[in-house]
Simulated scan of single mutants.
Amino acid sequence: MKPNLLYFSLYFLLIFFFNIFHATTAHRSNLIQETCKKCAQNDPIVDYKFCVASLQSIPRSHNASLHQLGIISINLNLSNVTHTRSYIKKLVKQKMKKNKETLDYDPYVRACLVDCFDLYSDAVSTLKQAIKDYKSSHYEDANFQVSSVMDASTTCEDGFKEKQGVVSPLTKRNKDVFQLSAISLSIINMLR
Score class of each variant (00 low, 15 high):
residue 153 S to P: 05
residue 192 R to I: 11
residue 172 K to N: 01
residue 156 C to A: 07
residue 131 I to W: 07
residue 66 L to P: 03
residue 9 S to D: 02
residue 178 F to H: 12
residue 165 G to R: 09
residue 29 S to E: 04
residue 145 Q to M: 12
residue 122 D to E: 08
residue 127 L to A: 01
residue 83 H to M: 10
residue 124 V to M: 12
residue 16 F to N: 08
residue 127 L to E: 06
residue 189 N to L: 06
residue 123 A to T: 02
residue 144 F to P: 01
residue 43 D to A: 06
residue 27 H to A: 13
residue 170 L to F: 01
residue 114 V to I: 14
residue 77 N to I: 05
residue 96 M to P: 07
residue 56 Q to L: 14
residue 22 H to T: 13
residue 180 L to Q: 12
residue 78 L to T: 05
residue 35 T to R: 04
residue 49 K to H: 08
residue 138 H to P: 00
residue 46 V to H: 01
residue 81 V to H: 03
residue 110 R to Y: 08
residue 60 R to K: 10
residue 78 L to I: 03
residue 42 N to C: 07
residue 189 N to E: 11
residue 38 K to T: 13
residue 136 S to L: 07
residue 167 V to H: 12
residue 158 D to Y: 06
residue 9 S to L: 09
residue 108 Y to D: 10
residue 150 M to A: 14
residue 25 T to L: 13
residue 138 H to A: 03
residue 43 D to G: 00
residue 38 K to V: 09
residue 110 R to I: 07
residue 146 V to E: 09
residue 31 L to D: 00
residue 19 N to C: 14
residue 91 L to E: 11
residue 170 L to N: 01
residue 151 D to M: 13
residue 20 I to H: 01
residue 188 I to Y: 03
residue 51 C to K: 01
residue 124 V to D: 14
residue 89 K to Q: 15
residue 154 T to I: 10
residue 191 L to S: 06
residue 15 I to G: 06
residue 188 I to P: 05
residue 99 N to C: 08
residue 82 T to I: 05
residue 87 Y to C: 03
residue 96 M to H: 12
residue 133 D to Y: 03
residue 101 E to Q: 14
residue 37 K to R: 14
residue 147 S to T: 08
residue 98 K to T: 10
residue 146 V to L: 08
residue 64 A to L: 11
residue 131 I to V: 15
residue 56 Q to A: 15
residue 48 Y to S: 10
residue 176 D to I: 02
residue 68 Q to I: 03
residue 168 S to F: 00
residue 55 L to W: 06
residue 76 L to D: 08
residue 141 D to S: 09
residue 3 P to S: 15
residue 105 Y to L: 13
residue 20 I to K: 11
residue 191 L to Y: 03
residue 118 D to T: 07
residue 91 L to H: 06
residue 118 D to H: 07
residue 140 E to W: 00
residue 4 N to K: 15
residue 81 V to Q: 03
residue 78 L to W: 00
residue 4 N to Q: 15
residue 24 T to F: 15
residue 60 R to S: 09
residue 176 D to A: 04
residue 36 C to Q: 03
residue 44 P to C: 04
residue 105 Y to A: 11
residue 54 S to D: 14
residue 140 E to Q: 12
residue 12 F to W: 09
residue 34 E to S: 15
residue 110 R to T: 09
residue 40 A to V: 06
residue 177 V to C: 08
residue 91 L to K: 12
residue 13 L to P: 02
residue 170 L to K: 00
residue 136 S to M: 08
residue 99 N to G: 12
residue 32 I to S: 05
residue 13 L to H: 02
residue 126 T to I: 09
residue 191 L to D: 02
residue 112 C to K: 08
